[in-house]
Structure formats: C-alpha cells, structure tokens
C-alpha cells in the first residue's frame, strides 16, 4: 500500500462551527496521526474555491442563521462546481446539521428560499413546530461497516428535512427525531456524500464512523491499524445510553 495520507478541507471554520465541529476534525487528525497516516487540514473560507484534486475529505459544519445564509451564497458562487467534481472523484463529503441542509437542494424559511448545493436529494423547510432537540441514536447500514452499526449524537434543528427524488437516508432512527421527527429517517447518503443532523460532536462519540470515513476517503482497500479504543468505545456506549439505547 502506498504511503497513506488524508487531505481534509474544513469549509468556513470561522462561520460554521456552532456545535463543536472542531471536535470532528480533531478526531480525524488524531486517529490518522496515531496510525502514521499523514493528515493535513486546510481551512477554506469565504470567497475561496475548491480544487477537487486536492482533497480526500471535505467537511461542512453548521452555524447561526445569518452565517449560514452568507455561506450558502458563497457555496453557490465559489464552491459548487468543486464540490460536485470532488464527489465525482470519490472524495468523502460530510455535512453536519447546517452543512447537511446546504448539501440539499434548498432550505425554505418563512419568506425566503436559500438555495443549496444540491448534491444530496433532500429539501428542508423551517417547520412551525418547536426545534427538534435531544439525544439521538440511528441504525446504519454502510458498505464495509458492521451491519446495523449505531451512530449516537445530539440533534438541535428547527428545519424539517425530507428525502426527495430517490434520496436514501443515512440510517433509521432508533431514538430521537432525525430528519423531521416523523419519517423515522435520519440523514442522507449518496455514495460518499453524507449529511446528518447528528452532532455531539459526531465523531468523538462514534469512532467506528470516523475510521469508516478515513478508510473510505483514503481508498477502498485501506485496512486501518487497530487503536486502543477503550475510552472511545466507552464514550460511544455513554452517548447511546444518553439516547436510551444499549450501544
């Protein structure tokens, strides 16, 4: 195997970082470092474009409404074509919370519609009901991962997201609300493009998923060296327990 490396783009780290998105990046970096996989994080901010050849994993977090509005406009103007090309190259694209919504086709607020990148077949509407807030556990089925592996995290979103045009969910809700609180679906996945409402942050609570992302981004044949994950597995169990599920 060629010397493995993971090149991460963190989009708008100054604007879209509301639910400790930094923790997700820290986990990816550390778990690469501990395996002697070279990793490099590049912050890509407002006005900058994305060179699809330069990144294996592209991360988009969530933010306050105003910040999200600014970043949505910037995504369309400067980054949309780069994101589409990166996805076509097989790069992993991970959008969390607001980032998930922006990967979809649009986000409808009371009197406006924010256009998304449209690389996931979802639409989001700001519902009249209360924000969907709480611990959540989701059962997934990802190629190469354990069948029915559980993702645990915390959700906090006003938007209701719906799969459209044949979009497939990331997983099925065991406890919590998920996309809209009624469909039983959580997140969306199309190949290596993934969106989810789960933070907590997501990857510290689900190290198996962090490793799945790393392996997928590096290349399908990558076998990751095992790590001492006692604390990570205990944290996963605790996050599952907080949602009321045995991890």
């Amino acid at each position: 195997m060629a010397k493995a490396r993971l090149r991460i783009a963190a989009l708008y780290p100054e604007q879209l970082n509301i639910y400790a998105d930094r923790g997700n990046i820290a986990v990816l970096e550390s778990r690469c470092r501990w395996r002697s996989i070279e990793s490099h994080v590049t912050a890509v901010g407002l006005g900058e474009t994305i060179d699809p050849e330069r990144f294996d994993l592209i991360y988009l977090g969530g933010g306050q409404d105003d910040d999200q509005r600014r970043c949505a406009a910037d995504l369309l103007e400067h980054k949309r074509s780069g994101l589409i090309a990166a996805a076509a190259n097989g790069a992993v694209l991970l959008g969390i919370c607001g980032g998930y919504q922006l990967f979809g086709h649009w986000y409808e607020l009371a009197d406006e519609r924010i256009e998304g990148v449209g690389i996931l077949n979802v639409e989001t509407v700001r519902g009249k009901g209360p924000r969907l807030i709480g611990n959540v556990a989701v059962e997934t089925s990802l190629p190469g991962a354990s069948p029915r592996a559980v993702l645990a995290g915390f959700e906090n979103h006003g938007g209701r997201t719906r799969l459209i045009g044949g979009g497939a969910p990331l997983g099925r809700v065991i406890k919590g609300n998920g996309n809209d609180g009624v469909s039983g679906e959580e997140g969306c996945r199309d190949g290596n493009v993934i969106g989810t409402y789960l933070h907590g942050p997501l990857l510290p609570a689900n190290c198996w998923f962090a490793d799945w992302l790393i392996a997928t981004a590096i290349g399908a044949s990558a076998e990751l060296a095992p790590l001492d994950d006692a604390l990570e597995l205990a944290a996963h169990k605790a996050a599952c327990a907080a949602a009321g599920v045995n991890g």
């Binding site: 970082n17 639910y19 400790a20 930094r22 923790g23 820290a26 807030i133 709480g134 611990n135 915390f154 906090n156 933070h199 907590g200 942050p201 510290p204």
Partner: peptide, 9 residues
C-alpha cells in the same frame, strides 16, 4: 445543558 458538545470547543 443536555448537549455536551461544548466541551470540544
């Protein structure tokens, strides 16, 4: 606060 993500910030 039910959400403990803040410890990562």
């Amino acid at each position: 606060g039910r959400d403990i993500s803040w410890i990562w910030d």
